[in-house]
Design a protein around this nucleic acid. Structure first.
Length: 488
RNA sequence: GGUAUCGUGGCCGAGUGGCUAGGCAGUGGUCUGCAACACCAUCUACAGCAGUUCGAAUCUGCUCGAUACCUCCA
């Protein structure tokens, strides 16, 4: 491969040239959703971010195994005072089986990801399907002397671990600071130190989800699943681990510790973290009351939303920001994104029927280089999109006869847009998904009738047709060559 | 309090030590039966203060502000 992809590595806090462990192959693990609630905007960002990474690596010729887990064993609830397993709590609330909840929300997650045109990962393992692997890992860590059992729970001994491996390198902390930052706590804890974390937890009687283990009935600690499943499918040391920035500490830090403690091997070469989505400048969260789920976006049913926004508008909006920046959602910004997206998609359509000429007034190779450079620079999609809009201007100008492209340049341009817009950014027009032959035929007839009316200077009929179609969500566009239509 | 990230024009968002990113909105044109689309031109900018430099929005320091995480509670 002649091109070099640079990835910002959270571990080193700088951009590094990406070199896979195995030539032409990439192993990538991304933290997936906890399926205990509706898929929301917070799920969309990492899914889209790493979907584009997945697509671009594949486009660049790598064979990629993309693993994204489904957390169905349940993590702790942040704001829980009861200390119940997230999933068990929801189950009790709704009088359902835990796995019924999990099934329901897994399906709705998949539907939302599909709507956002995120490719399914290569493997989508579930935590509950890998209890044995997690128990085995806990046993190895115990055997290696980096954990201890207390009262049927097992904790990772972070101080002991830190003597052999540096703890806190990913999040830029050290144990002393962490201990300092922990305010005077009880002393009642069964843990040796407040920095220790559970890798296996005893289940209290009210716990519905529980498994037998060498330490009694319980469930895996909340960081175990990712360590166990990433090792199982990608190996002890793999290329890329992704997730939201909020997971850097403690989740990913714990994963590193667990893997080292178990395998004496640093698990991940490149750590990638997408930034948060904010609403009115604040992180979106249930407790803040600014929580918008994806369904509400698609339908427009939320107090914060002026109207509905299509999945592709959301996708485009997210891609207009670099993945390491926060994105603030607002109606004005969303509507701007929607317009920009429509402009891009219209140009895609125009490009299909463009006429070539005997010389070019524009350098396609330069544009292509700019596009690759943008993506190679830590997947800089906003820069890529800016360059694509350069192409859009050219496409429209060629149509107007103000610029020209040779046949070979034109087909290059078509390939460029197909590669970058459709395959890499994963943007598809609403028309593509909602169109059928019958609609085409009917619209052809309608446009013919309107054309006749215009010829007869019957503009009131022509305008009536246009206005009514507009109400139905179809935009008529007149040009010298005739009229065309598109679904808005 | 600790750690990290960040503060760019009406809105959203890139970016580099010197050469107007881009999208949306605004303004003026061209096109058009009118409109939409499109094209051309154009107006708003780099939180504040000090320093380094021939030159800084880009480097350094300080100030102010914003956001995230700080782990055991099951």
């Amino acid at each position: 491969m002649s091109r070099k992809i640079q990835i910002y590595n959270t571990l080193t806090r700088k951009k590094e040239i990406f070199n896979p462990i195995l030539e032409n192959h990439v192993g990538m693990y991304v933290c997936g959703p906890t399926v205990y609630g509706d898929p929301h905007l917070g799920h969309a960002r990492p899914a889209i971010t790493f979907d584009v990474v997945f697509r671009y690596l594949k486009h660049s010729g790598y064979k990629v195994r993309y693993v994204r887990n489904i957390t169905d064993a349940g993590h702790l609830e942040n704001d829980a005072d009861e200390g119940e397993d997230k999933i068990a709590k929801k189950a009790r609330l709704e009088q359902l089986e835990p796995m019924e909840i999990v099934q329901f929300y897994t399906i709705s997650y998949h539907k939302a990801m599909d709507a956002l045109n995120c490719l399914p990962p290569s493997i989508e393992p579930r935590a509950t399907g890998h209890i044995i692997e997690q128990i085995e890992m806990v046993q190895k860590i115990l055997k290696n002397g980096f954990a201890y059992e207390v009262n049927s729970s097992v904790y990772l001994d972070v101080k002991k671990y830190n003597a052999s491996y540096p703890y806190g390198t990913l999040s830029g902390r050290n144990i002393e600071d962490t201990l300092e930052g922990t305010r005077a706590l009880d002393g009642q804890s069964e843990k040796k130190s407040s920095v220790d974390f559970a890798i296996w937890k005893k289940a209290n009687p009210e716990h519905i989800m529980r498994w037998d283990s060498p330490w009694g009935e319980g469930f895996p600690g909340w960081h175990m699943e990712c360590s166990a499943m990433s090792e199982k499918y990608l190996g002890k040391n793999f290329d890329i681990h992704g997730g939201g920035m909020d997971l850097v500490f403690p989740h990913h830090e714990a994963e590193i510790a667990q893997s080292n403690a178990c395998n004496n091997c640093n698990p991940v070469n490149y750590w990638m973290h997408n930034n948060m989505i904010t609403i009115d400048g604040k992180k979106m969260g249930k407790s803040l009351g600014n929580f918008i789920n994806l369904e509400e976006f698609f339908i427009g049913n939320h107090a914060k939303l002026d109207r509905a926004y299509s999945p592709m508008t959301i996708r485009f909006f997210i891609l207009q920001a670099q993945y390491r920046s926060t994105i603030d959602f607002g109606n004005e910004a969303l509507q701007a994104a929607e317009k920009g997206f429509t402009k891009l998609m219209n140009a895609m359509g125009t490009l299909e029927n463009l006429k070539h000429s005997d010389h070019s007034t524009y350098d396609i190779n330069e544009l292509e280089k700019n596009c690759y450079d943008a993506m190679d620079d830590d997947f800089n999609t906003p820069i890529l999109i800016a360059h694509l809009f350069d192409g859009v201007r050219i496409i429209n100008s060629v149509k107007d006869g103000k610029e020209s492209l040779t046949a070979s340049d034109l087909s290059k341009m078509q390939k460029l847009f197909s590669d970058f817009v459709t395959d890499i950014l994963g943007l598809i027009s609403a028309k593509e998904s909602g169109e059928n032959d019958l609609t085409d035929e009917v619209m052809e007839l309608v446009l013919k009738l309107r054309g006749n009316a215009k010829k007869n200077k019957d503009f009131s009929t022509a305008d009536l047709i246009r206005d009514e179609l507009e109400k139905a969500g179809i935009q008529i566009k007149d040009s010298r060559e005739g009229s065309s239509w598109e679904i808005k």
